[in-house]
C-alpha cells in the first residue's frame, strides 16, 4: 500500500484532474468489457501500461508487480475455468493427466474461455492500476466529493485512509518493541506476539479515534469535515488519449 501511495503522489500525472484520469480508466474498463475480445483486453493492458510508465513515468517494475499480485489471484480463478477434474476423460481434450482414478484435463473451448476471462480481467485491472498508480486516494476522494457523494461517506473514506497509515505506524512500533524483547525469537513467541498485537492495535485505534474526535472539536468540528477543494491541471492530451484508446480498441475488435 505504501508503494502504491508513494508512486501515486510522485508520478508525472499527479496534478492532472482526477476526474480526467478516472474517466479514462472507466472508459477503458467499459470498452474492455463491452467489446469483449481477448485482443481488446490485451490492447487495453498495453495502453494502460504505456500511460502509466511513459506518461506518468512510474517504473515498469511497479506496474508489473501490482498487476502480478492481482494476476496471482486471477490465475487461481482462471485455472478453475480452464481445467476440469473428472473420473473420465472429456471428448477431444487438448491435454489430459491422470492422477489415480482422477483425470485433470482441458479442452480447446475451456482454454479459450479462460484466455478470454484472463485478458478481459487483466485489461480492466490494468485500467484500475493506471488510476491508483497515478491518483492518490486523497484526489479520488476529492473526485467523489465533486460527484456529490454523501458527505458522511466521503468523511469516513478520508478518515479511514488517514487511519490506515497511523495504524501502520503503530503496528511497526509495536513489532519493533516486541522484536527488541525477543518477541519473534521462536515460532511460538512470534505467534503469541502477533496475537497480542491484534488486541493492542484495536485499543490503539479506539484511543486514537477518541483523540481525533477531540482534536476535530477543538477546531470547530460540527459534524462535517469541511476542507478546501484541491486545484488540479486539466490536461487536453487526456481527451486525445481517450479518443485514441476508443478508436484503437474498436478497430482491434473489428479486425480480430
Amino acid at each position: 500500500m505504501r508503494v502504491i501511495d508513494r508512486y501515486a503522489f510522485g508520478n508525472a500525472l499527479r496534478d492532472v484532474d482526477p476526474s480526467q484520469k478516472g474517466a479514462l480508466a472507466l472508459l477503458a474498463i467499459i470498452l474492455c468489457l463491452a467489446l469483449d475480445h481477448p485482443a481488446v483486453g490485451i490492447l487495453t493492458l498495453v495502453w494502460m501500461l504505456a500511460l502509466t510508465t511513459w506518461r506518468a513515468r512510474t517504473p515498469l517494475r511497479v506496474f508489473a508487480s501490482v498487476l502480478l499480485t492481482e494476476g496471482a489471484f486471477l490465475g487461481l480463478s482462471v485455472a478453475g475455468i480452464a481445467l476440469s477434474v473428472a473420473s473420465s476423460v472429456p471428448e477431444a481434450p487438448v491435454f489430459a493427466w491422470q492422477f489415480g482414478p482422477i483425470w485433470v484435463s482441458a479442452t480447446h473451448k475451456s482454454l479459450m474461455l479462460a484466455a478470454h476471462v484472463l485478458t478481459r480481467t487483466l485489461g480492466s485491472a490494468a485500467a484500475l492500476n493506471f488510476l491508483i498508480l497515478t491518483t492518490p486516494l486523497v484526489d479520488l476522494i476529492e473526485m467523489l466529493r465533486r460527484m456529490r457523494l454523501p458527505e458522511g461517506l466521503i468523511d469516513i473514506m478520508a478518515l479511514t485512509y488517514r487511519a490506515i497509515f497511523v495504524l501502520l505506524d503503530s503496528l511497526e512500533r509495536m513489532v519493533t518493541a516486541q522484536d527488541a524483547r525477543l518477541g519473534y525469537h521462536t515460532l511460538h513467541a512470534a505467534m503469541r506476539s502477533a496475537a497480542l498485537i491484534g488486541s493492542c492495535l484495536f485499543l490503539d485505534a479506539y484511543r486514537r479515534s477518541q483523540q481525533i474526535q477531540t482534536a476535530l472539536e477543538s477546531r470547530g468540528f460540527d459534524g462535517s469535515l469541511r476542507v478546501l477543494p484541491l486545484d488540479y491541471r486539466r490536461d487536453p492530451r487526456m481527451w486525445q488519449i481517450g479518443v485514441g484508446l476508443t478508436l484503437s480498441l474498436v478497430l482491434a475488435r473489428m479486425i480480430a
Binding site: 486523497v138 476522494i141 488517514r162 469535515l225 469541511r226 478546501l228 484541491l230
Partner: peptide, 21 residues
C-alpha cells in the same frame, strides 16, 4: 501528538479545516 490531530491525508486540506469551520 500531531498524529492525534491531523485527520486529513492532505496537508493543505488539514490546515484549511479550522478556517472552513
Amino acid at each position: 501528538n500531531p498524529d492525534d490531530q491531523l485527520f486529513s491525508a492532505s496537508v493543505l486540506q488539514d490546515i484549511s479545516f479550522g478556517p472552513m469551520n
